[in-house]
């Protein structure tokens, strides 16, 4: 399914315009990095796209009924909340809720999806561990596994790699890259421009609530845009594994 955002806008009660006329189409096979400085509106855009916030304009996800939407898109919020001491397998199985009719128990296909998600995140040995006792990185992996178990064509993630160690960051980006290659659509709000440039097929730049750039990393991360939006300079260095983006300094 293609995510279509049509002129999404939002004004807060205090009169601040946090999103203004953001339009985009994100289709299968794309791994889109949503980048922009703090306060640019990345989280607000993701929540508006899902229909968790009432916003102007139209989102192809927000118009769906809640359960149907939950079978189309999985969402990883920025806050990694795990309120109760569930074991990891039960936590990951929460992702199967949208696929179960009221009162229906978890069945063989659900268990298979959970097992696959656990394997995908290398959490097989953690199935019966208590989620709240895991390290921050392990919890983040368990939560991503929950989103994978939801088995949706679209995945929206709000800063999924913030606070992870380098290996976990790269593993997560590689996973999203693979999901996109398998034909899913992935949108991730990111702050790490190097990883975004390396793995995303496309970058969308938000600045003060507006979309100011949309294209391949090479097109988007121009010196002018970096200076104007991020107040930094940076450069692409050609290497054997493709061009690597490196932020250099403040401007």
């Amino acid at each position: 399914m293609t995510l279509v955002l049509d002129h999404i806008g939002l004004t807060r009660a205090n009169g601040r315009r946090v999103l203004d006329g953001v339009s985009a189409r994100i289709g299968a096979g794309e791994f889109v990095g949503l980048i922009g400085p703090n306060g640019a509106g990345k989280t607000t855009l993701l929540r508006a796209a899902l229909g968790l916030l009432a916003a102007e304009g139209e989102s192809s996800l927000a118009v769906l009924p809640p359960r149907a939407r939950a079978r189309e898109v999985a969402f990883l919020p920025q806050a990694r909340e795990i309120a109760w001491d569930l074991n990891v397998e039960t936590l990951v199985a929460l992702g199967r809720n949208p696929h179960l009719a009221p009162g229906q128990r978890i069945g063989a296909p659900d268990r298979a999806a959970v097992a696959q998600a656990l394997g995908e995140m290398r959490l097989e040995g953690f199935a019966s561990r208590r989620a709240t006792r895991l390290s921050g990185g392990e919890q983040a992996r368990a939560l991503i596994a929950r989103a994978l178990a939801q088995d949706t064509p679209l995945l929206l993630a709000d800063e999924p790699i913030a606070g992870l160690d380098p290996a976990a960051q790269i593993a997560t980006m590689e996973l999203f890259d693979r999901l996109a290659r398998e034909g899913r659509g992935v949108v991730a709000a990111l702050h790490d421009l190097s990883l975004a440039a390396r793995y995303c097929t496309r970058l969308i730049v938000l600045h003060e609530g507006r979309k100011v750039a949309d294209g391949t990393p090479m097109e988007v991360l121009s010196p002018e845009l970096l200076a104007q939006v991020f107040h930094i300079s940076g450069t692409f260095t050609p290497t054997e594994s493709g061009p690597i983006f490196q932020p250099l300094g403040l401007v």
């Binding site: 969402f75 309120a83 109760w84 939801q150």
Partner: peptide, 10 residues
């Protein structure tokens, strides 16, 4: 358990 946003999105 996963927070209000995650639950609503599910």
């Amino acid at each position: 358990t996963l927070g209000e946003d995650a639950a609503e999105a599910m």
